[in-house]
Write a protein that binds this DNA or RNA. Structure first.
Length: 472
DNA sequence: ATGTTC
């Protein structure tokens, strides 16, 4: 394959491939670690007609059809929508709640263990345990997002205003196309964590002087305990995505569309299949944001149980990293696919949610287990990448390869088990979550360095884990 | 990612 490398500025490469160009944002070390396969995948994606822009953030790695870490843009007028460039966990994303606590308040392991137990009593982490919120009508949630929740589950208006999107509006008649088993399998799952890389973490913040002013505006302080949540649309999004991959694949066959990768699925936005997928994708985005909301509701109850009913744990922000959003760029509406990429809008950008219009919104970036996560803010220069930054550390090893290469002892050591700085985990044995160990991921500090060096975003706070809750 | 393998 033809590969021509051009440098645009610090940490910004443009790679010319056979069927178009892919932009790469990475420092020299991360850039050199990219395997040939990610460029093969980019080239297959660039065969899709009328692509306006395609890029990789530094956490990019091989995925199904399209790399995780991809931003891909088409015009709404003549563009395409791709379920495989959205990814399997539609609406997967991040949420952070703040607390008034300082890290010393939960340094005592007994306190942290009590918190973990309390959280698990409200948020099921066992894969097949139903949520405690049986009175919530799932159909109202997928139709209206947060506005479909009973008001007793909305503690205050901030839980609606401090999110990337509270309600995606779409044509609900498309829900009639869905196979009934999707409703059946998603029932009882609202407010449950899921497995894989999903987590709830208790972290404390490290804020340096340069970002202290903005951090204070957001209500953040050095040493503060925060709650970070990573989850998605559970069975609703997964089954819907799978179903429409299948439907669209058949349509591609009928249209005679050819692509070397059979897992790369796409259709014109204006086609029946494209319209159907987009409308149903919105239902999954509504499910996902509501799912994180209800997980947070449970965690809030747990904090009240442990620290008393007066404790306040307001939401900082909730945003997604697997979706296709209609956004206005270059004087026209575009469909921006982000598959494992996070929007980071700069101060005063019109796409910001109103409460963060002036400062830009918090961009929430998880690390791997046992390493730091980050709260960032976008910069003007992010325009060159359609305001996309990384979504985390990014895998370097498959789940299977990780289990072969890393021992339980090595994992335990990276969680500093047995020391004062131990990260407490809700698993008796680390064996079941070994594939989530930090050795399975790139070094998140290198990823953040890449993004900052490329002037896409700045660090506002570093979040250091104290306790982690994972699915079982 | 996923009631995981149509």
């Amino acid at each position: 394959m033809n590969m021509q490398q051009k440098m645009h500025g610090n940490n910004h490469y443009e790679i010319g491939l056979d069927h178009g160009n892919v932009h790469v944002f990475a420092n020299a070390e991360v850039f050199q670690s990219f395997e040939a396969k990610v460029y093969e995948m980019a080239d297959n994606n660039l065969r899709i007609p009328r692509n306006v822009y395609m890029s990789y953030t530094p956490d990019a790695h091989v995925g199904v059809g399209t790399c995780i870490g991809t931003t891909a843009v088409w015009s709404m007028k003549d563009g395409i929508v791709s379920p495989s460039i959205v990814g399997v966990d539609i609406g997967c994303g991040m949420r952070v709640h703040t607390t008034p606590l300082h890290k010393r308040d939960i340094q005592d392991k007994a306190v942290r263990r009590a918190l973990i137990a309390a959280i698990e009593s409200y948020v099921p982490t066992n894969e097949r345990t139903n949520s405690h919120f049986a009175d919530i009508d799932i159909m109202e949630v997928v139709k209206q997002g947060l506005r479909g929740l009973p008001s007793k589950y909305v503690p205050d208006n901030q839980w609606i205003t401090h999110v990337e999107e509270s309600t995606f509006q779409y044509d609900h008649t498309y829900l009639e196309h869905l196979p009934p088993k999707i409703r059946k399998n998603a029932r009882g799952q609202l407010g449950t964590l899921g497995s894989g890389n999903h987590f709830i973490e208790l972290q404390y913040l490290e804020i340096n002087e340069a970002s202290a002013e903005l951090a204070a505006k957001w209500g953040l302080f050095d040493g503060q305990v925060v709650i970070m949540i990573h989850s998605g649309s559970r069975a609703w999004g997964a089954m819907l995505g799978r179903e429409y991959n299948k439907v669209m694949k058949e349509a591609m066959y009928h249209w005679g569309v050819e692509n070397p990768d059979p897992n790369l699925i796409y259709a014109p936005i204006t086609s029946k299949e494209g319209k159907t997928y987009l409308n149903l994708m919105y239902s999954a985005l509504n499910f996902a944001v509501s799912n994180r909301h209800m997980i947070a509701f449970g965690v809030r109850q747990a904090f009240k149980d442990v620290f008393g009913p007066q404790i306040e744990t307001p939401v900082l922000y909730d945003l997604m990293h697997n979706y296709a959003l209609k956004e206005f760029h270059r004087n026209q509406p575009m469909l921006v696919h982000r598959k494992g990429a996070t929007r980071a809008l700069p101060p005063n950008h019109f796409l910001n949610t109103p409460v963060y219009k002036e400062t830009g919104h918090p961009a929430l970036i998880p690390g791997s287990m046992g390493t730091s996560s980050y709260i960032m803010v976008g910069k003007e220069e992010g325009l060159k990448n359609f305001y996309s930054i990384c979504h985390g550390a990014g895998r370097v090893r498959s789940r299977r390869a990780t289990k072969e290469a890393v021992t339980i002892d090595q994992f335990a050591q990276s969680l500093r088990i047995g020391t004062e700085e131990e990260i407490l985990v809700n698993h008796r044995s680390l064996e079941t979550i070994l594939d989530e160990c930090p050795q399975a991921y790139k070094d998140v500090d290198q990823i953040i360095d890449s993004v900052v060096g490329a002037s896409l975003a700045d660090v506002v706070a570093r979040c250091i884990p104290m306790a982690a809750i994972k699915g079982k």
